[in-house]
Amino acid sequence: MQQLEAALIEAARSDSQAFAELVVRYQDRLYNYLYRMTGSREDAQDLTQEAFVRVYQALPRFHLEAPFRPWLYKIATNLAINQLKGRKPAIVLEDYVPSRALDDSPERQVETHEVQRIIAAAIAELPDTYRPVVLMRHVEELSYDEIGKALDLPIGTVKVRLHRARAALQAKLAAAGLHQAAASLRDAHEPAVTQ
């Protein structure tokens, strides 16, 4: 996997066809990240495109032995923060339509929907310094080390920010009385095997 990625990045420096493969590989994750960072589909689309153009411009000078994902997310994060200029991301309610497993009861669908909406709103409320840490960890599944590299932060700071951000999200869920509902998401996440 690592080898393939390194080969792809090296080829993408001089070959736009290889670069297109790199875009295909990362565009969904980057778009989703930028959507959570900005709260806007339009911004996410423009910024994803812009991030890839920046990657293309800088790729000839990228050190192949350096990890690619933190670098990619660093470019995307800087673009998103510039775009927001201190604003908080918007929350689009239509994006949280109940769409879980079909055999869920209507009550549970509504509950799931509500948990997601509260979590999304709580993420949007986080300061610009915390939001990327939470998103990189949970949505993108980057390690502490990768997050530190992406944000130029020591691992200790990543740890502290993640801890505080989760505590803030936890408090929002508790305030809405939805902690139990959040627990039931485990089943939604990993569908139970039917006998």
Binding site: A20, V23, V24, Q27, D28, L30, Y31, N32, Y35, R36, R41, A44, Q45, T48, Q49, D95, Y96, S99, T112, V115, Q116, I119, A120, I123, V134, H138, V139, R166, L169, Q170, L173, H179, A182, A183, L185, R186, A188, H189
Partner: peptide
């Protein structure tokens, strides 16, 4: 753990078809 589950269960959007 519940907070983490709620975060992981957020819907993931795919890039629009025209983006590539």
């Amino acid at each position: 753990e519940r907070t983490a589950l709620a975060l992981e269960a957020l819907p993931r959007l795919a890039a629009p078809a025209a983006l590539l």
